[in-house]
Simulated scan of single mutants.
Amino acid sequence: MSTWPVYTGTDEPHDRVSRLPDPPPWRSFDGGPALPSPSPEDDSVSCDRKHRAGTYQATRESVELVNAALVLRRPLLITGPPGSGKSSLPYAVARELKLGPVLRWNITSRSTLQEGLYQYDPMARLYAASKGAGRKRSGEADDGDPAGDAIEDHLRLGPLGTALLPYERPRVLLIDEIDKSDLDLPNDLLNVLEEGQYEITELVRAAEHAPTARLMAAGGEARVTVDRGLVRCRAFPFIVFTSNGEREFPPAFLRRCVPLHLRRPEPDHLEAIVRAHLGELDGETTQMIVTFLERSRTGELATDQLLNAIYLSRVPGLAAESREALAASLMTHLGPVAEFHDF
């Protein structure tokens, strides 16, 4: 039975992820006990994300490199101009392979590895403990507050920490705009990405008295069991880093990723994107695509600018001159305009 490709780039969900070949010996993980994968049908997924997943138009190169990342159990590092579909791709992969809701970690200059793995609120725990002690001293009855002073009541796994739980199938994790991070974050991620595991220090310290803990995972209210503070994956997650190219990354980080650069769509691909989002093309829509491509030669434009302009052009009652003016305003260059000189 063929094992390639697992991800096909179509919009039809299937179970080919079960055909993934065994991981390379150096990327095999044995975390457990195995957790069932979340249902692919989840009402908490926003309409926007469902739409992006169902309309994403994959290129041949993106399909090949997604499969390479899945087979090698390595993160995918996607670069490319704004609006090229970098953050939509993981939603398309999760939908097609039925891998459940996408976990998302939006990176800022203040993001830390700790934030991605788990959050612990010691002040809330101290308050809960003092509140309980005060009731006992005064002989007050329990007021029914479910919050306790156990460590597990004040810990919650982050998106990266949740993705590394021992799920039967890989979870999909989008780490968006990694180039906006502090300089140390890519290096801080290296050990976790290499080992597929991490420790929750607070639980390791308490393991002698409380060997297991039930923690809330990211993306819902469900609790998962963590044994002696160690979380180790079973199926390495499909991790997607996106970058707008605002900085360079250290070689040690780059060699652990499968690189994918998304280029500006070619005319045929751009037409397919418009059809997927807005239906069949008419004469006016075709002309707007031509205008967009011409303007793209002299400056940076994003595909969603074109989609916005086409959508507005189809609003009933909008006069032709207004449509043209709005389209010109919406398709404003995002960066410096290229200058051309005659010699």
Score class of each variant (00 low, 15 high):
Ser2Trp: 09
Tyr7Val: 00
Thr8Gly: 09
Thr10Asp: 13
Glu12His: 09
Asp15Ser: 06
Ser18Gln: 12
Arg19Ile: 11
Asp22Thr: 11
Pro23Ile: 02
Pro24Glu: 15
Pro24Met: 14
Trp26Pro: 06
Ser28Glu: 02
Leu35Lys: 13
Leu35Thr: 15
Ser37Ile: 02
Ser37His: 00
Ser37Lys: 00
Glu41Asp: 11
His51Gln: 14
His51Pro: 11
Arg52Gln: 00
Gly54Thr: 09
Gly54Trp: 08
Tyr56Asn: 02
Ala58Lys: 01
Val63Gln: 03
Ala68Tyr: 06
Ala69Lys: 15
Leu72His: 12
Leu76Gln: 05
Leu77Lys: 03
Thr79Tyr: 07
Lys86Gly: 06
Arg95Asn: 07
Glu96Val: 05
Pro101Tyr: 00
Pro101Asp: 02
Arg104Asp: 05
Ile107Thr: 11
Ser109Tyr: 14
Gln114Glu: 12
Glu115Ile: 14
Met123Phe: 08
Arg125Gly: 02
Ala128Asn: 08
Ser130Arg: 14
Lys131Val: 13
Gly132Val: 01
Gly132Glu: 05
Ala133Trp: 12
Gly134Ala: 13
Arg135Asn: 04
Arg137Asp: 12
Gly139Ala: 03
Asp143Val: 01
Asp145Ile: 10
Ala147Asp: 11
Gly148Val: 09
Ala150Cys: 14
Ala150Trp: 14
Glu152Ile: 08
Asp153Phe: 10
Leu157Val: 03
Leu160Ile: 03
Gly161Gln: 04
Gly161Asn: 06
Pro166Thr: 10
Glu168Leu: 02
Arg171Cys: 13
Val172Tyr: 09
Ile175Ala: 06
Leu183Ala: 15
Val192Ala: 04
Leu193Ala: 04
Gly196Tyr: 15
Gly196Phe: 15
Tyr198Glu: 03
Glu199Ala: 02
Thr201Val: 10
Glu202Arg: 08
Val204Leu: 05
Glu208Thr: 04
Glu208Ser: 07
His209Pro: 07
Ala213Gln: 02
Ala218Tyr: 15
Gly220Ala: 12
Glu221Ile: 05
Arg223Leu: 04
Asp227His: 01
Gly229Asn: 00
Cys233Glu: 08
Arg234Met: 02
Arg234Asp: 01
Phe236Arg: 01
Ser243Ala: 11
Glu248Asn: 04
Phe249Met: 12
Pro251Val: 00
Ala252Leu: 02
Leu254Pro: 03
Leu254Lys: 06
Arg256Pro: 13
Pro259Glu: 04
Glu266Phe: 09
Leu270Tyr: 01
His277Lys: 09
Leu281Lys: 15
Leu281Cys: 14
Asp282Lys: 11
Gly283Met: 02
Thr285Gly: 12
Thr286Met: 06
Gln287His: 07
Glu294Cys: 05
Arg297Asp: 05
Leu301Gln: 10
Ala302Arg: 04
Thr303Cys: 14
Asp304Ser: 00
Gln305Lys: 10
Tyr311Pro: 08
Ser313Leu: 06
Arg314Met: 08
Glu321Trp: 12
Glu324Trp: 15
Ala325Trp: 09
Ala328Val: 14
Ser329His: 13
Met331Ser: 00
His333Ile: 12
Val337Ser: 13
Ala338Arg: 14
Ala338Leu: 11
Ala338Cys: 13
Ala338Gln: 10
Glu339Arg: 03
Phe340Thr: 09
Phe340Glu: 13
